[in-house]
Computed example of a mutant assay.
Amino acid sequence: MPYLLLALAIAAEVAATVSLKLSNGFSKLAPSIVVVAGYAVSFVALAKVLKMGLPIGVVYAVWSAIGVAAVALIGVLFLHEPVNLVMISGLVLVVGGVVLIEVGATR
């Protein structure tokens, strides 16, 4: 159950972050509503995950790294944002760091 809530928190945060760009500085109503609702859902779900006893370092690392990777991928695929090898390498390092945090937390 905590990982399902964590997945919800990540999905809501990704939707909110992408909508932040689409809101054009909060000048478009629908994406602006998704921003506020998405961040609210994300933080409530994240708080519930933490209440279930998962370590905050692991939860935050997974939440932020998957969110960063997902937003970057959406930016490249759907928003036509540029990508290069250096940026890809950075994402690999972020995800690799989260894997190491997860492995270290289980020892």
Rank of each mutant, 00 (worst) to 15 (best):
31 P>L: 04
33 I>R: 06
89 S>V: 10
92 V>A: 14
3 Y>F: 13
82 P>E: 06
102 E>G: 15
69 A>K: 01
68 V>G: 09
89 S>H: 06
19 S>G: 13
2 P>E: 13
32 S>A: 09
107 R>A: 12
75 G>K: 01
41 V>D: 07
27 S>R: 15
59 V>Q: 08
44 V>R: 00
90 G>A: 05
79 L>N: 03
65 A>K: 03
66 I>L: 03
40 A>K: 06
61 A>G: 01
6 L>M: 08
77 L>K: 09
24 N>D: 15
70 A>N: 01
68 V>T: 14
80 H>R: 10
80 H>D: 13
88 I>F: 12
12 A>V: 04
39 Y>C: 01
52 M>E: 04
16 A>F: 13
66 I>G: 04
76 V>F: 07
37 A>Y: 07
8 L>T: 14
69 A>E: 03
1 M>I: 08
55 P>V: 00
48 K>S: 05
4 L>P: 14
43 F>A: 00
72 A>V: 05
59 V>C: 09
80 H>V: 03
16 A>I: 11
101 I>A: 08
30 A>V: 13
10 I>M: 10
13 E>S: 15
6 L>T: 04
102 E>Q: 14
48 K>F: 07
87 M>G: 15
8 L>F: 15
65 A>C: 05
50 L>R: 02
98 V>S: 10
54 L>C: 08
4 L>D: 12
34 V>A: 09
98 V>L: 04
31 P>I: 00
51 K>W: 03
46 L>A: 01
32 S>N: 08
15 A>V: 14
41 V>W: 01
17 T>C: 09
97 G>E: 10
99 V>T: 10
76 V>M: 07
78 F>A: 09
89 S>L: 11
32 S>C: 04
86 V>H: 14
45 A>L: 01
25 G>C: 10
9 A>L: 10
23 S>R: 11
80 H>I: 02
95 V>A: 14
24 N>R: 15
74 I>Y: 07
35 V>K: 04
68 V>Y: 05
26 F>N: 10
102 E>R: 11
28 K>D: 11
101 I>D: 02
59 V>S: 00
44 V>M: 06
99 V>I: 14
88 I>V: 13
38 G>C: 00
102 E>V: 15
1 M>L: 12
78 F>S: 08
92 V>I: 12
45 A>H: 05
77 L>I: 06
67 G>P: 09
54 L>G: 06
73 L>K: 05
11 A>D: 15
62 V>Q: 00
6 L>N: 03
84 N>V: 01
39 Y>M: 07
18 V>Q: 12
1 M>P: 15
70 A>F: 07
21 K>N: 14
65 A>M: 02
98 V>T: 14
41 V>R: 02
10 I>G: 13
85 L>M: 12
93 L>G: 10
47 A>G: 11
4 L>Y: 11
7 A>Y: 12
59 V>T: 00
57 G>I: 02
49 V>W: 03
100 L>V: 11
33 I>H: 02
89 S>G: 15
49 V>K: 06
49 V>R: 06
15 A>E: 12
67 G>L: 00
52 M>Q: 01
12 A>H: 11
27 S>V: 09
17 T>F: 12
45 A>D: 00
39 Y>W: 06
35 V>L: 00
62 V>C: 04
75 G>E: 06
106 T>E: 15
105 A>F: 09
70 A>L: 07
97 G>A: 08
27 S>K: 15
61 A>M: 00
99 V>W: 12
36 V>H: 07
43 F>H: 04
6 L>S: 03
32 S>E: 08
